[in-house]
Design a protein around this nucleic acid. Sequence first.
DNA 1: AATATAAATGAATAATCATTTACTTATGAA
DNA 2: TTCATAAGTAAATGATTATTCATTTATATT
Lengths: 196, 196
Amino acid sequence: MRLRDEKKEEIVRKKALELLVQLGFDGFSMQKLAKAAGVSPATLYIYYKDKEDLILRIGEEVGERMVKATFDGFHQEMDLKTGLWVQWTNRANFHLNHYLETQFYEQLKLTPYKDKLAENITAKFSQEMGGFMKNAVKNGETNRMKPEVFWSVAFAPLYNLIRFHMAGKSMGGAPYQLSEQDMKAAFDIVIKGIKK
Amino acid sequence: MRLRDEKKEEIVRKKALELLVQLGFDGFSMQKLAKAAGVSPATLYIYYKDKEDLILRIGEEVGERMVKATFDGFHQEMDLKTGLWVQWTNRANFHLNHYLETQFYEQLKLTPYKDKLAENITAKFSQEMGGFMKNAVKNGETNRMKPEVFWSVAFAPLYNLIRFHMAGKSMGGAPYQLSEQDMKAAFDIVIKGIKK
DNA sequence: AATATAAATGAATAATCATTTACTTATGAA
DNA sequence: TTCATAAGTAAATGATTATTCATTTATATT
């Protein structure tokens, strides 16, 4: 029996991310991927059922890594400010250190592929956030609100800053670069708004 | 001289949006568009130089309509809360009434096409927002901060709620639907955070 | 060392792709 | 009414697409 070459598999994943981001989902193709990864097109079909399977499986893997990173060192019992800041820094670090994964996943979530993504990722999110929120309400740190509202006011500003950073675009001037200072400025505003 | 059929042109634009969102950028093709719009593929090349031109020109048109809608009834001299709320409601109304345009534009801004998008859209944004912010600082309503930070804390929560609504997904339960009540809840938190 | 088996491949498949060509149709101006 | 001209088309172009086939290669087990 011949063993599967794990390194080859990893190169395929990496190059897939690279090409999907660089060329966009419409510029990407199995043949281009095969060429870039230095394998035969047929090899891709050993690893993945078809193109959709490839994109979805890579997407799910990225999603899982993202969630894991987000909740690293986080506990639902943390007080509101601490718990939020842990997630903010975790997220920022992940995104800044994994440009391709972030870019790819953001796109994926907007394409029709999103409907076929396994949902265990969002499940973990909801569960952790739900408990955390409930705690914060019980301790009188914030008012009860829908999870979607909490999520939006608590995290969307950070994600937006990261998106600005990723785009490398400015609002008229030099390309924007996310700094810890900006993160803290935004965080202070967010916390002030959420705290009772 | 034969005149160009404006109705035909409009059908093409509309069907292009429809297909791009429904099939994703990678599922979309000129032949599918031609068929869906009931015209010859060659006709598309009378309206647009090539596929890229088609996507970009439609994107720019959508962007312009979005900006116009956002600043409808808005003046830089408005006080912070009023000005923000005008933009919030404008945005929400536009997005909720123009599902396809919103979905398409969000995707476009993440694909490699974004680098080729004409920038007059962001220019208008920066200009309006810059003046508004400067005013608010001068009047002692908020502290000075980078435009990207202001943008992120002031608008990202709303966009995120809209995204939740669009996705039709929930955080564990029934599909989320944006209500004015939720918008107001989020807005109160945002304003509380931003106001000095 | 022989064998079984899955990995890996190069070359093919038919379908679809973006775009062009040669042609017909409609209409404003003469 | 004729004519010039751009709109519009059906059919074709060659390139690229996703996927498969027939075959070779490597290795774990016997």
